[in-house]
Amino acid sequence: MKKYTLVWWKLAEMSFLMQCANRWSSLGWLGGKIVRFVFFFIFLTAIFRHVPNVAGYSLTQVTFFYLTFNIVDILAQLFFRGIYMIGRDIREGDMDFYLIQPVHPLFRISSNLIDFLDFLTLIPVLVLTGMVLPKILGALNFPELTLRLILYGLLCANGVTIAFSIHVLIASLTVRTQQMESTVWLYRDVASLGRFPSDVYSELFRAILTFVFPIAVMVSFPSKALLGILSWDKVALAFFLSSILLALSLGSWKSALKHYCSVSS
């Protein structure tokens, strides 16, 4: 465990050094992310000038859904972004080096592009969340409050786990087919549907977002748990789904590696 922490920090440091070498570009990416975050935020607040609620949620609640989406999404990107590049890693032979090092290849690949800019974008998101939380939880007694916060934290972690599994599934697919890496972008697009509370989508589509592309479980369930509107069977379902996905993805990764046929030099 200590080894993995050290390696992770070193990789993070190296990515940071690389970003410093390309600081204008990095600033641009950071700017773009902030623009996206701020504009969606403005949009969500602006919409409440025209309507009293969205799918039954108040401004605070919708904001909270949006912030939670950002937390899970940013964390997933922070930890797993390296997987986006797996196609290139395979083509250029870097994958071979990862495989002969005494660390888990999935860890090595995921941590290959740790982005400090994500830390920077995470800060305002967390600050805003801290500001919104009291408004949602203000009236609760202490045990109830702790319970909800713990459940929220667990479900967020669960969301990150689901994101990880999806990344691993895509990585396995890429190893198997030597292409398909663009499916990662498809995932990013579908995940962006989680900006709004899942209740804005029709019943059928909500089911798809729960069971097929479990984006709702990933980003909407934590907020619902915190709001106290997620039934216990849904909580169980969330953990059940993520365990199955995780097992499935790790299994597929293992078998993909067996089929891995590295490019010849």
Binding site: K3, L6, V7, K10, L11, M14, L17, M18, A21, N22, D94, F97, Q101, P102, V103
Partner: peptide
């Protein structure tokens, strides 16, 4: 396996942690 944009020394350090 060396990082293209960084001095080789950085990758040495990385391998120190990995091994």
């Amino acid at each position: 396996q060396l990082w293209w944009d960084l001095p080789a020394r950085e990758t040495f350090r990385l391998n120190q942690k990995i091994y």
